[in-house]
Design a protein around this nucleic acid. Structure first.
Length: 242
DNA sequence: TCATTAACTGAGG
DNA sequence: CCTCAGTTAATGA
């Protein structure tokens, strides 16, 4: 796999804010990256580890998750190609959650040393990483509101709309359709619902003509109504073109 | 294994 | 009394 392909989604995301020049992009593309494949459900990084490198998700879907003593799992975020889910490990020694491959994944490992050098030499990139971390926090705030306050249909709608927007940016949507390789069990762990209720909720959204989730493919049928239901405003993603 | 559905239950508005 | 969501169990793909 060539360097441009490895970093293509990342660059797409970073370029969205238009703060990077061609030299910055070149610096990213020439980072030392060790590419490794993971099977679905395989841990990429585990809670308690002290990584010496950051993960760049190149292909596939991954989640950050925490597991409680009695076996409950909360999915904290969903990651797509171009994401660096553990950018935090660059400055925080120990992982406080797991990073798990949802599907077969291709992951690039970038040594902390190389990243530290990069951000010291290139303030533009430092700013973009800083910004990315803040957006990450903004997404967590939405996630908390979602799980803590919204009812199941709004909750599911919000998750779907956020993913649609993020996937769109890295070119992984076909209009209002996209692949979402998650089982209802996994969706349940993300939404803080039971799998049965996820199924009921998906059925209701389908019957209301808002959303179709079928064979790991999502099709948004009525985006306006879905946004209304989800109370969704993509401002928190800070990716508007305007 | 995963998705679907029904029936029942309790919490809370 | 109604809505929402968890539990259990049966069944289908």
């Amino acid at each position: 796999m060539d360097r441009k392909t490895i970093t293509a989604s990342l660059v797409k995301r970073m370029r969205f804010s238009e703060e990077l020049d061609d030299d910055d992009v070149l610096a990213i593309e020439t980072l030392p990256i060790a590419v490794k494949d993971f099977a679905d459900n395989q841990h990429v990084v585990s809670d308690g580890e002290q990584p010496t490198q950051c993960c760049l998700l190149i292909e596939g879907f991954a989640v950050r998750a925490k597991t409680t003593k009695d076996g409950g799992r909360q999915i904290l975020s969903i990651h797509i190609p171009g994401d660096i889910p553990d950018l935090q490990s660059l400055y925080l020694q120990e992982m406080d959650h797991d990073l798990i491959a949802l599907t077969a994944c291709t992951v690039g490992f970038i040594p902390h040393l190389a990243l530290r050098e990069l951000v010291r030499k290139r303030p533009n990139i430092a700013e973009v990483f800083w910004r990315d971390t803040l957006i990450d926090a903004a997404m967590f705030r939405q996630w908390i509101v979602n799980v803590g306050q919204r009812q199941a249909p709004s909750r599911m709608a919000h998750l779907i709309l956020e993913l649609q927007r993020r996937l769109e940016i890295v070119g992984r949507t076909k209009g209002d359709s996209f692949r979402l390789p998650m089982t209802q069990d996994e969706l349940a762990d993300a939404l803080g619902l039971t799998a049965v209720h996820v199924n009921r909720t998906a059925k209701q959204l389908r019957q209301d003509g808002l959303l179709l989730i079928q064979r790991q493919t999502v099709k948004i049928l009525n985006k306006e109504k879905l946004k209304e239901l989800a109370d969704f405003d993509d401002a928190y993603l800070h990716q508007s073109t305007s």
